[in-house]
Design a protein around this nucleic acid. Structure first.
Length: 546
DNA sequence: AACTACTTCAACCGCACGTAC
DNA sequence: CGTACGTGCGGTTGAAGTAGT
């Protein structure tokens, strides 16, 4: 059943003309109901339609797109008209391939903004968000296939000078200094590191903590970054509630997750990807298709940009899907963009050098496929293990007393990680090594909890020259309950009493479908099922107990 | 030349937000 | 305050084009 033919339109573009067909077929063949018996056309635009739309805009101006079909013979919905105008018909559109300058600008902007295509388009005259988005998506695929980091090493997106407006609008209740620490790491290389680490994390539960920890250490308390928040947001009943709570779940994605993951969960293939109905975990409603552990959003991010291409069997669910949307330093102000473009480079830290080393140095080749993770791409495991090696070796090169004040806390916390022995994993030892990794991470959050995170909103760093005044914490707030409950467990310890946590979650998620579906409200036994399926919160063995 | 796999990109969809009523 | 509507954005899809075999 052919319903359209391709013709050459006036503007040289290939357009398609929908053949006349019975009304019943039109909906399925590019037409949809327009109410009142009319139909709205879908599919490629014809030059005739373009002409009608152009005429309309000439007469009435842009906007009020839904009126187009009322005032013209155009059988297109308003959205379609707006899109056609914005992407193809409006004047001063630049067609053709992106120039080198444009490409570089896109990369830099993406490093800063994440997938804010419309904002990027504002800084690329004549380019549309759709163009940029398509370009980026193809670029990602190319780089994935080539095994290259998302951002080329030469891309140094340097320190950002954040506008007060941005800070006010995006950073709520965040310690400014910590925020600044993170901003200093608003660097493409760091972004690439996060990408890779997160991806590694998706393969290895312990590694996910490595990812979290490294990220959080890099950031001081990464939880206070907007990027981290962007990761965190899916775990919450709604972004609005989250923002209105003005609170944080420090280290949530790594900590609580840490308590529940195990290789068994990892191997479990029972659960299905179902973002709407998956179990509510403390850190993510997105459920990894492999294993039904409540995973962090770092473990399973529903995003179209994944590393799966060429790296994991694409026939499988996107296990290990890693959100490539990078730190969404979402500029709300144009001026902010202009500011960072003109901002001189800050001194590069050793930390970033080590990041460079991580990104640029080839992964080790001696690691053989593990029995436990035979289904995983060993190259990715290599990547993780390689990162561990880098960390181990870097501890000798990173001075403990970094001269960069702004990175002092970052450096110290990074050293905390680096001082943890990293096992060299060989064939057949991966499972053990995983445990070791998990064990090795245990000490870190304690340092963090002492030096970087504590219950509630009190954030303290190891910086001796800064005294952080503890904020008064409303311990009745569910988010605080959640955090305090977790900290009561020693951050990475076994959950001995999950009642307060579940209660906090119940409060947090109260009234929400997700929460109601998967959180047993008011359970105080600690044995009640809190998750979906067989994966209760308390029946998951800690990683190191396996 | 034929087939397949891959890439590109236009267009659609769902969602969120702002505004008017 | 709730609802409807208009608009914009980001993610996704699928047809057309292209490269490889």
């Amino acid at each position: 059943m052919s319903y359209k033919t391709t013709v050459e339109s006036d503007d040289g573009m290939h357009s398609s003309i929908h053949n006349e067909s019975p009304a019943a077929d039109r909906i399925a063949n590019g037409y949809r109901s327009r109410g009142r018996g009319g139909v709205l056309k879908k599919g490629p635009w014809t030059s005739t339609e373009d002409g009608i739309l152009i005429d309309y805009v000439k007469k009435h101006g842009e906007g009020n797109w839904n009126a187009v079909q009322k005032h013209t013979s155009l059988a297109r919905c308003g959205k379609s008209c707006r899109l056609r105008w914005a992407n193809h018909l409006r004047p001063n559109l630049k067609k053709g391939a992106f120039s080198q300058e444009e490409e570089q600008l896109i990369v830099e902007m993406h490093a800063k903004m994440g997938n804010k295509w419309a904002q990027m388009a504002e800084h690329l005259p004549g380019r549309t968000d759709n163009e940029i988005k398509n370009y980026w998506n193809t670029r990602i695929k190319r780089r994935q296939r080539a095994g290259l980091p998302l951002y080329p090493p030469e891309i140094h997106v340097e320190d950002l000078q954040w506008s007060e407006e941005y800070t006010k609008s995006k950073i709520i209740g965040v310690d400014r200094r910590r925020h600044h620490d993170f901003l200093q790491l608003g660097n493409a290389k760091a972004n690439a590191l996060f990408d890779d680490l997160n991806f590694a994390a998706s393969l290895l539960p312990a590694a996910s903590d490595l990812s979290d920890l490294v990220a959080c250490n890099l950031l001081g308390t990464g939880a206070s970054s907007s990027w981290y928040e962007s990761y965190m947001s899916p775990i919450l009943p709604s972004p609005k509630q989250f923002w209105e709570s003005g609170s944080r779940f420090p280290m949530c994605s790594s900590n609580i997750k840490h308590e529940f993951q195990s290789p068994e969960h990892f191997q479990n293939t029972a659960s299905q990807k179902n973002p709407r109905s998956c179990s509510i975990s403390p850190c993510g409603v997105h459920h990894p298709p492999y294993g039904n552990q409540p995973s962090s959003d770092m473990m399973m991010i529903l995003d179209s940009h994944t590393f799966t291409d060429g790296m994991l069997p694409t026939s499988k669910p996107s296990f290990g899907a890693v959100k490539l949307e990078l730190p969404s330093f979402q500029y709300s102000e144009t001026s902010a963009f202009d500011q960072w473009k003109a901002t001189p480079s800050p001194p590069q830290s050793d930390l970033l050098d080590s990041v460079d080393a991580y990104i640029q140095s080839p992964p080790p080749s001696e690691i053989e496929e593990s029995d436990c993770f035979s289904s995983c791409d060993t190259g990715l495991l290599d990547m993780l293990l390689h990162e561990a090696k880098i960390k181990t070796s870097a501890k000798h090169s990173l001075p403990l007393s970094s001269p960069e004040k702004s990175l002092s806390s970052t450096t110290s916390t990074t050293n905390a990680i680096q001082n943890v022995p990293r096992p060299q994993i060989k064939s057949g030892e991966l499972e053990d090594s995983q445990k070791n990794l998990a064990r090795s991470e245990i000490s870190i959050p304690r340092q963090l909890s002492a030096g970087g995170i504590s219950s509630g909103n009190f954030v303290k760093t190891e910086e001796s020259d800064h005294v952080w005044e503890p904020k008064r914490v409303d311990m009745t707030r569910p988010d605080v309950l959640l955090a305090s409950s977790w900290f009561d467990q020693g951050c990475y310890g076994i959950v001995r009493d999950t009642s307060s946590m579940s209660d906090a979650l119940a409060l947090l998620l109260g009234g929400d479908d997700i929460g109601n579906s998967y959180v047993t409200v008011g359970s105080s036994s600690g044995q009640a099922p809190r998750g979906v399926g067989s994966c209760g919160w308390t029946n998951m063995p800690p990683v190191w107990s396996l």
